[in-house]
Design a protein around this nucleic acid. Sequence first.
DNA 1: TATATTTGGTGAGCGCACTCATGAATTACT
DNA 2: AGTAATTCATGAGTGCGCTCACCAAATATA
Lengths: 222, 222
Amino acid sequence: MVATKKLKPARRKTKPGPAGRRAQSKQEIRERIVKAALGLFQTKGFDATTTKAIARKAKIAEGTVFNYFKSKDDIALYFFEQEVDQAMAAVRENPRLRKAPLEEKLFTLVHSQLEFLAPYERFIGTALIHALKPASPLGPFSHRAQELRHRYLGFVEELIAESIPRPQHSPLTFLAPEVFWIYYLGALLYWLYDSSEGKQNTLAFLDRSLNVGVSMLRRGKR
Amino acid sequence: MVATKKLKPARRKTKPGPAGRRAQSKQEIRERIVKAALGLFQTKGFDATTTKAIARKAKIAEGTVFNYFKSKDDIALYFFEQEVDQAMAAVRENPRLRKAPLEEKLFTLVHSQLEFLAPYERFIGTALIHALKPASPLGPFSHRAQELRHRYLGFVEELIAESIPRPQHSPLTFLAPEVFWIYYLGALLYWLYDSSEGKQNTLAFLDRSLNVGVSMLRRGKR
DNA sequence: TATATTTGGTGAGCGCACTCATGAATTACT
DNA sequence: AGTAATTCATGAGTGCGCTCACCAAATATA
């Protein structure tokens, strides 16, 4: 029963400095984890990145990662939350867009998302593959990602509502946000494989397809 | 090559057992695995079912499971393949449907799928949760499930093509199979939570929504 | 029948994501 | 200040899905 175990006294690196308060340190560690994880995701891919490696790079114990994120998928999800929030804010806070046509708002939305993702292209690629696996808790239709998706769809619905007058609503209008969600996934794939300079092919594709889509929405009254 | 024959005391190793042929045994084991897995999925849920338990119930070693299926997800996928194939066959082989309107064919398709799934409701529930996780390799958008999804979408596209004349094709028609895929997922969820007798609410929902959807497709020309 | 080749079941073992009892560092209370 | 209460980093441990070297049984070849 009595195990002669090497009990290493848990040594904590006490920063002698005017050590930040708890909350401060918490925020800092959270950022260290995200930064370490994103770096590894980008260089090694999502699956090949272990939580142990993330912890090592963030200079914390492996278990600590799970004090901040419920799962490895959650770390990636956190990143996508930032991506979506940032893009929605970009649309909302642009006064020029206030009275712009719907297709322009949607273009800005997707464009902002892609800009945010740009530095992490490799990560996005591996994460998307991972996410599209039928069992992925990170997937674009997953339970875990539901809240984020819901927020995004709600926002798109809002944009549509303020551009398409009520009486024109058709069953298609009701489905539009869902369709747009799929559309965004398609655009992401297009973007990932777009090797044109500055991803201009993707931008052109967005422009054209959004025009077609929105005009279909307008015509589709009743 | 040149045989230096050695004479050894003959060792009879042949077990008098009714040794089945290899192929026969293979098929049998495969079925044992599927049956054991489905049983456990249904009673304990997908996640809570371990491959060890499946092996134990199928009376084989754990490793053997992976000689027949690449992963645990693949076992579930195999089940869904049967489901889809069966439903497509039900539509194809029903002569009455030959000249029936599109909405009727689609209704039969989905209805057949639901009938097949009926005895495994609990399993479907847990599997769907599992599958909708962003990282699930079983998920409805996963890489692994891609082939099955492709087959299904191709079939739906065929049905649409033989009902909607070419010149009426619009961008919407192009997207229709993808939309229908989402629609099917929605219907599955509806069905899972439908506590009405004989799931009649789901059937009514299917009837109404397919009528609306198909007529939209017809009107949406050009 | 005797020997060579192939098939495929086996289960210990691996690396993984994730858990948990522990106790040190911090905060709250007096 | 001292002391109690709380927070939370820690890392060995757990159980998982899955791999692999092994070798017996089945089959092919003689």
